[in-house]
């Protein structure tokens, strides 16, 4: 969950400036390589907190209190629907962003003129913090599900759009000559050559977009209090239910992990199908 403002391409490749579209396919940010025993400090900290923390502390309620304070939300049936709303906003937003980003990115990247004409505008929209759009969208679209979606879609589109744009731009011209000389139709060229070649950049974009979409979904909910996990968090904070805030944070974390895990799974499935080749 590195960024809230749409991070640029460099964020995905920490050090090496990866040539878009090509480069090593299976780059893992060390998840598999990190030893599990590294969790010990965190566990020790939580244990200490549990032992030393006072159950009545308004600031640092111990972990056992978190669960106790969150349970009522489960029992009165508010937590699950809230989770559902957040997940729905996230998923719908990400799906729309993927289609929008991929198709626009491919179109823009395919034409030198379009690329130059739209480049600066896209650049400005990319660096514009999504957070600043929350009040704008709320005012224009009202406090609705569409508003939530619009705010999630906008920032989540950029990473996908930009990776697709640069990948399309740097797509080998030979790869585009192949379908022509083999007499493939325009449609076949798109479905058999261009779109498959774009799968990897789209995934690379999703890897950045997915956590972003989740964060933005939570943010909209916290700010506008429209139903969802973020709304519960905001309400708990407003009522000074600190233990409940910690509990909900933990749940948000689990959601974050689930998103990460899903994206990694998707990448593995695609890698297995598409091979690790240069692309």
């Amino acid at each position: 969950m590195s960024a809230m403002a749409t991070p640029d391409k460099t964020s995905t490749a920490a050090t090496a400036p990866a040539t878009p579209g090509r480069g090593p396919g299976r780059r893992r940010n060390g998840h598999s390589g990190t030893p599990v025993r590294g969790l010990l400090p965190l566990i020790a900290l939580l244990g200490l907190w549990q032992l030393a923390g006072s159950p009545d502390s308004p600031y640092y309620p111990p972990p056992s209190e978190w669960f106790a304070a969150t349970r009522p939300l489960v029992e009165n049936g508010t937590l699950l629907p809230a989770l559902g709303w957040s997940a729905l906003t996230f998923l719908l937003g990400l799906i729309i962003a993927t289609f929008l980003g991929a198709s626009l990115g491919i179109l823009v990247g395919a034409s030198r003129v379009a690329d130059r004409a739209l480049g600066p505008g896209l650049e400005f929209l990319r660096v514009l913090p999504a957070a600043s759009l929350v009040p704008v969208a709320a005012l224009i679209l009202g406090y609705t599900m569409e508003m939530k979606l619009a705010i999630v879609v906008l920032p989540a589109t950029w990473p996908i759009l930009l990776t697709c744009r640069s990948a399309r731009r740097s797509l080998s011209p030979v790869l585009l000559d192949v379908p022509r000389t083999l007499g493939l139709s325009r449609k076949e060229r798109l479905t058999k050559v261009v779109l498959p070649a774009m799968t990897r950049p789209v995934l690379l974009g999703i890897r950045v977009s997915a956590p972003l979409a989740l964060i933005i979904a939570l943010l909209v909910e916290i700010v506008t209090r429209i139903n969802g996990l973020g709304a519960l968090l905001g309400a708990a904070q407003a009522n000074f239910e600190s233990a409940q805030v910690y509990g909900l944070l933990l749940i948000a974390g689990v959601l974050g992990y689930a998103v990460n895990w899903l994206v990694t799974l998707l990448e593995d499935v695609v890698s297995a199908r598409m091979g690790t080749a240069t692309g």
């Binding site: 080998s172 030979v174 790869l175 000559d177 192949v178 000389t181 083999l182 007499g183 058999k192 050559v193 498959p196 070649a197 799968t199 199908r273 598409m274 091979g275 080749a277 240069t278 692309g279």
Partner: peptide, 18 residues
């Protein structure tokens, strides 16, 4: 033309890796 096919030098980019 329908019965003319070009073979490119850059074989690695003219084969579909997937």
């Amino acid at each position: 033309p329908a019965d003319v096919v070009t073979v490119f030098q850059d074989y690695s980019h003219s084969l579909l890796p997937w």
